[in-house]
Design a protein around this nucleic acid. Sequence first.
DNA 1: CGTGTAAGGAATTCTGACACG
DNA 2: CGTGTAAGGAATTCTGACACG
Lengths: 109, 109
Amino acid sequence: MGKDLSYKDKKVITIGVVRDLTGLSERQIRYYEERKLIFPERSPGGSRKYSFADVELLMDIANKIEDGLQTHEIRKEMLREEKKQNQEDVRRKMIQGQLNAQFGIRKRQ
Amino acid sequence: MGKDLSYKDKKVITIGVVRDLTGLSERQIRYYEERKLIFPERSPGGSRKYSFADVELLMDIANKIEDGLQTHEIRKEMLREEKKQNQEDVRRKMIQGQLNAQFGIRKRQ
DNA sequence: CGTGTAAGGAATTCTGACACG
DNA sequence: CGTGTAAGGAATTCTGACACG
């Protein structure tokens, strides 16, 4: 429980570095946030912080934009995938619950 | 050949985030660099960029300082470990070379 | 719709130095 | 030796707006 996120998911990268890593403009990066495609954290002072996972997501988004998709379509795609992922999680947890009920609680290390 | 570094080794984190991640002061972080214990990259504008590996290294350094070690002792320790690591690498590569000579070049995927 | 840009301000980082010890 | 701090400046980031289309 409460496992600390791996490097990939830690939000530690500022927008300038993300710009360099992705090749996108800061304007584009902020705009995709405005359109609810990406969700950086904020420093106490208000600076955006991104993870490596965010960087990869941004490159996916950029590809889809190039393919002519609009941001709201990309958003719908993402929500669909998220939903599917949640369903898989639920199924996995239900099976785990069954196993625990049968054989007792055993924490995986 | 030329494999791109994993997340752990990419220098993308600014000093403020490193401060928050390690609990060290910016002064301390810069000082350990001055003492050649840590080697951040620089942005075009001159800002330091650290990797997650650097963050972990800084926490090791902090522990050793607390144990009363001086920076130059810590540096010697690190150089010793680095040397040992290099020797291991050489040995590994020599063995690989032998195998290639015997059985031909085969790239590991 | 998606992106560029100029504007003004605030947060962030930098260096070199003085201080304590 | 290791660290804190005030100082001044430069790089970085922020927001809201106008522009094009």
